[in-house]
Design a protein around this nucleic acid. Sequence first.
RNA 1: GGGUAGGUGGCAGAGCGGUCAAUUGCACCUGACUGUAAAUCAGGCGCCUUCGGGCUACGGCGGUUCGAAUCCGUCCCUACCCA
Length: 331
Amino acid sequence: MSSSRKILVILGPTSSGKSDIAIKLAKKFNGEIISADSRQIYRGMDIGTGKAKRDRRSRVVPNKSSEARFREGSRENSNAFMSCSIPHYMISIASPRANYNVAKFKKQAGKIIKDILKRGKLPVICGGTGFWISAIIDDINFPEVKPDWKLRKKLEKYSTEKLFAMLEKLDPERAKNIDAKNKVRLIRAIEICKSIKKVPVLAGIPSVVEGSGQNNKYQFLQIGIKLSREQLYKNIEKRVKFRFKQGTIEEVRKLRKQELSWKKIQSFGLAYFWIPLYLQNKISKAELIKKVIHAEKNYAKRQMAWFKRDKRIKWFRNNGSILKKVSNYLK
RNA sequence: GGGUAGGUGGCAGAGCGGUCAAUUGCACCUGACUGUAAAUCAGGCGCCUUCGGGCUACGGCGGUUCGAAUCCGUCCCUACCCA
C-alpha cells in the first residue's frame, strides 16, 4: 500500500448518527475508527456515553486481531450477534478515576493514526468532542505543563477576580485575551505560568483563524452530520429513553460502588450528573429523564456552536452524498 | 353563602407610591473556547427606534395622587378554611 496521508473525520452533535456512518465508511474504505469522545474514553461508562450502541452497529464477525492495544474492551465485542469487525480505538482505555485530557488524547491518538496509516488503512476519526478533534487536525501544541491538582484545588477557592488579578501579574499578555470570568481557564493559565513563567502566545485555533496553519503531516476531510434541530431533538429523546431502558442507572450505581464519589461521577456531565441526584432521592424518576433529555439537547447546541466555526467541515444530511464525497477524496 | 390568602413578563418568584420595562432563577436565543471540553464561561431576552428616546405592560374596570405593579372601591379568577 502506498503511504497515504489521508484521514477521514466524521463529526456531529450527539445523536446525529455519526457512529453508524463512520462504521459504514470504515467498512467500505478499509478503515479503522478512532473515537474522539471525551467520555467514551472511560471504562465502565458504556450506556450513558452511548458506547454500547449495538442497535446501531452492523452485524459482522467479531474481530479477533490483537494489534490494538488501545482498542475498546472485550465487553462489547463479546456480543457476537451485533458486534462489529471494525476496530475502535480510544474507547474504554482509561479508568474513570484517572484524569484523562486533551493532551493525552492527542498524543495517544497520534500514535494510532500513524500505525493505521502504516498498515495501509484509513483512519476514521469519529466523535463529538470538537476540541479533541481540533487538537489533532490543527496539531495544537499544548504546553508541557501537566495538571497540578494540588495547586488547582487551592486556586479553586479564590474568586475569579482574584485569579484574574494573579494572572495579570504573571502574564499580562495572556490576561488580555482570556475569559476573565472563567475559573477553569484562569486556573490553567496560572498553572502554566507557575511552571514555565509565561503562557505561550496563542496562535488561535486554526480552524477558526484564517490563514493560520494546520497539521501538514496529514490531509483531512471533515464530514459533519447535520440534522434539523427538530429531528435532532427527536433522536435525543428517543436515545435517552432507550438508554434508561438499557440500564444506565444501574451503570451509575456500579460506578458508585467502585468508590467513585458522587461529585466525581457528576463531573462527567449529562446523565452522569443527574442520575446521582436520583439515586440520592433528590429528584424523581420522571424529573430525571426530563433533565437528562434537556441536558443532552443543550449539549448538542454547544457542540454545534463549536463546529460551526470551522469552515473546512463539509456538512451532509444523508449518507448517499457522503459516500460520493469520501470516495472522491480517497481517489 | 361566610372568612382568609393571593392574582406580576413563557414558567417560578421578588418588588408594595417615584430612581420599575420591573431583582433573581429556570426556559429560550446567540456566542466564546489552546491540558477538566458531556466541562467551563459570556451576552441577549415586551414592541418600535434616526439609539436621544418613544409606545404598550404587573387579572378587568373605575378612583385617590403631581406620580400607582405598589393605596382605595368594585368585578372576575385561584387556593385554603368555615358553612
